[in-house]
Computed example of a mutant assay.
Amino acid sequence: MKDADKGVAGELDGHDLRIGIVQARFNAALTEKLYETCKAELQALGVSPKHIRHVTVPGALEVPLALQAMAELKEYDALIALGCIIRGETYHFELVANESGAGVTRVSLDHGTPIANAILTVENDAQAWARAGEKGRDAARVAVEMANLLEDLS
């Protein structure tokens, strides 16, 4: 395979990166676990604590608007969305899951800012707890990798 045919991946070096995190407070214990593991992984990847901006919003539907406000500042190399939507007995689950996901994607594409979407959409509390730590770490890694990739591609 020629080098030109190989995919290019971003590095997992977070030094000098500025990362914004928007955390939904609904299902607070779960989203706090997402945040704590995300923050710890960002720091393990070299992101300085002073370069991590953390804001909270009421729920998953409010996450995209806060992300948009942060993206418009042009101060962040990547953003991270944290939340947890647990299926209930009504259609509300689908509405919140679909609209929050679409909003996160739209902000990323509209602003050319990588956003790691770690808004969990699960059936029950057990599934949420089983994923909270792993997805928080994954979000940190995705944010750092994509910030570096976009820098390399520009």
Rank of each mutant, 00 (worst) to 15 (best):
L30D: 14
L67P: 04
E41N: 12
G59W: 02
A40W: 09
Y35Q: 11
R87C: 01
R25K: 13
N98A: 07
L61Q: 13
E89W: 02
A40C: 07
I21F: 10
G46L: 11
A69C: 10
D110T: 04
A24I: 02
E99A: 01
E75P: 00
T56P: 01
L109N: 12
I21K: 13
A81C: 01
Q43K: 13
L95C: 03
G59T: 00
I80S: 03
A81T: 00
R25G: 08
P58D: 11
I86A: 05
D77S: 10
K50V: 13
T31D: 14
E32D: 05
N98G: 07
A71K: 05
Y91S: 07
E89I: 00
E72K: 15
F93H: 10
I52W: 06
P64I: 00
H51A: 14
S100K: 00
L17Y: 14
Y91W: 09
H51M: 13
D110N: 08
I52L: 09
E99V: 00
T37I: 04
D16Q: 07
E94A: 02
E36Q: 13
K39W: 08
E72I: 06
V55M: 14
K74C: 12
L30I: 15
L79K: 08
L95W: 04
P58Q: 06
G88R: 05
L73W: 04
L34R: 02
A102K: 10
V107D: 14
V104R: 12
Y91V: 04
I80L: 01
L34G: 06
V107N: 12
E62H: 02
C38E: 08
A71T: 00
R18Q: 13
I86T: 04
H15M: 04
E99P: 02
G46V: 05
K50E: 15
Y35H: 12
L82Q: 07
A66I: 01
A29T: 07
L95R: 02
V57D: 12
E32M: 02
Q68P: 09
N98L: 01
R106M: 13
E99G: 02
S48P: 03
E75W: 06
E36G: 02
L82D: 09
I52H: 06
A81N: 01
H92Q: 02
L95V: 05
E94Q: 12
L42Y: 09
I21A: 11
C84T: 05
L34T: 04
A66S: 07
E94M: 04
K50S: 14
L82V: 03
G103T: 01
C84L: 03
A28Q: 12
L79A: 11
G59A: 03
V63Y: 03
L109R: 14
T31A: 14
Q68E: 15
L65C: 05
H54D: 08
I21Y: 13
S48R: 09
E41T: 14
I85P: 06
H92T: 00
L17F: 11
V22I: 02
M70A: 11
T31K: 08
H51F: 12
C84H: 05
S100W: 00
G14V: 00
K74A: 15
V107R: 12
G101T: 04
